[in-house]
Design a protein around this nucleic acid. Sequence first.
DNA 1: ATGACAATCAGAGATTGA
Length: 259
Amino acid sequence: MKIATFNINGIKARAQALSDWLDEAQPDVAVLQEIKSMDESFPRELIEDKGYNLETHGQKSFNGVAILSKYPLEDVRRGLPGDDSDEQARWIEATVVGRVPVRVCGLYLPNGNPAPGPKYDYKLAWMERLQARAKELLAMEEPALMAGDYNVIPQDEDAARPDAWRKDALALPESRAAFRRILNLGYTEAFRARVQGPGHYSFWDYQAGAWNRNDGIRIDHFLLTPQCADLLVDCRIEAEVRGREKPSDHVPVWVELDA
DNA sequence: ATGACAATCAGAGATTGA
């Protein structure tokens, strides 16, 4: 089973690019971030005509996440638990019912800039809630994963110019520590279980020719429960997608599971 | 130090992103 994550930076602007990528990459499941649309304005037919089931958790203009799957989706939950006053659409989860059922969570973690400040406080609070949900998922002792745009550069090797991010919310020690605390619960970061070393990125800024200079960062991640990590066959970043017409600033990342 | 680039909503330019 191939499961992908892709921050598409606007479903309206990226409908064609998303369609082309789905046709070519043929993921069984994909979680999308930054759809930047209400549920009712999501181009459902585009996805469903390809044989995908679709669940969205949208919001006007900003944020917004979705899950699409060629297998049935059950027990869909929208919104990260832990704060009923949080109205930002950044979390969706569902059970993908394939040969081996997998609980798939799609997330769009807050950027947090400028730091310090209220936006950074929101990011860290959101990460605490994420850790709580991560604990619950572990307690189920079943294959589960949390995939998406974490807006965290885990280590210096995950940035082409680590010094440029030193004071940024994506790389501050508190952000990295919060990410590491979740890993330390017992999660496997799929990409680093498969690939070592620097030079692997999932985001390149639109500005200053970042793509052409390969000035990227790795912020789109898969975290797997032990039962899911046991199924891991491969994990890849589809960097070449960044060089296409009208690209998102992120590229797809996917895992292959023996499920 | 600043701006560069893109998407959205709205219908200009502010806001957000990373």
